[in-house]
């Protein structure tokens, strides 16, 4: 699938085919895509634990259910729990930044050297940053968000459906016995969609000009109608929700999966 079409087809899928397994290689593709996300100082905070719904003991599965996501956990065959490993920066002490210098990604043309990394960046910036939890957490989680978004798009590119949910952080850590410095983030539920790919249509978004600016905050970024048309043609901007057939679709899904209406 073309990139723009993948973006256009991504939406939170909440109706999965409960009995259609997801191929292991597709799960690996999702993880491989997360690993290649952009990442500050090449630290890689994101960790993931993949759970096959039918292989996790029922008592653990029940512990992981939140009131809002109990049904989707039952429907989706694969659950990927994402965590933020806050301890990584202190463990690697800038070594992965050095790798970027070795790889020529960070070059002297832009002021980079091993000496700068070893004597300045780690001791003066990174290490102190980890001691200011509020700022550090925000930075690390932003990076995890980017990687999780890559994973999400990969799922759709593989013809799957997916949805990010927020699990109970305390119970999640307890169930998986993760280290103390891992922060529970999201669970990405993955499976083959039981609903149509449009799933009711592209979700409503705030107006473009309300979100993006040009030069200062008083000048909205001008949205070119021609670009919008091109994106529609490329499948990135698709039919907006609500679609007229959605009500009927939900009724049919409720009937087939035996869900309340």
């Amino acid at each position: 699938m073309e990139f723009k079409e993948v973006v256009g087809r991504r939406r939170s899928i909440r109706f999965f085919e409960p009995d259609k397994p997801v191929e292991r290689e597709k799960v690996q593709v999702i993880l491989e895509t997360a690993r290649l996300a952009s990442c500050a100082v090449n630290a890689h905070w994101l960790r993931a634990i993949v759970v096959e719904r039918d292989k996790i003991p029922p008592d653990k599965l029940n512990q992981l259910k939140t009131p809002v996501a109990a049904l989707t956990l039952d429907l989706a065959p694969i659950h990927i729990y994402f965590f933020c490993d806050l301890g990584v920066v202190k463990r690697i002490k800038g070594s992965r930044l050095r790798e970027l210098v070795d790889a020529g990604a960070l070059a002297p043309t832009h002021g980079w050297s091993h000496k700068f990394v070893d004597e300045f960046v780690y001791p003066q910036i990174l290490e102190p940053m980890t001691n200011n939890l509020q700022g550090y957490l925000a930075a690390a989680m932003a990076d995890c968000g980017g990687a999780a978004q890559n994973a999400l798009l990969a799922a759709f590119d593989e013809g799957l459906g997916a949805c990010l949910n927020t699990p109970n952080p305390v119970l999640t850590k307890q169930v998986f016995g993760v280290p103390d410095d891992w922060v529970s983030l999201w669970v990405m539920l993955v499976g083959y969609p039981a609903e149509s790919w449009e799933a009711g249509g592209q979700r409503p978004r705030p107006p473009f000009e309300e979100l993006y600016y040009e030069g200062d905050i008083n000048t909205p970024f001008r949205r070119d109608a021609g670009v919008v048309e091109k994106l529609k043609a490329a499948g990135m901007i698709t039919r907006p929700a609500p679609l007229p057939e959605r009500r009927q679709e939900i009724m049919q899904l409720a009937e087939r999966l035996n869900l309340p209406t």
Partner: peptide, 9 residues
């Protein structure tokens, strides 16, 4: 009152 059944209720 938010409520969900399981699969197949």
């Amino acid at each position: 009152i938010f409520m969900q059944g399981g699969v197949g209720g």
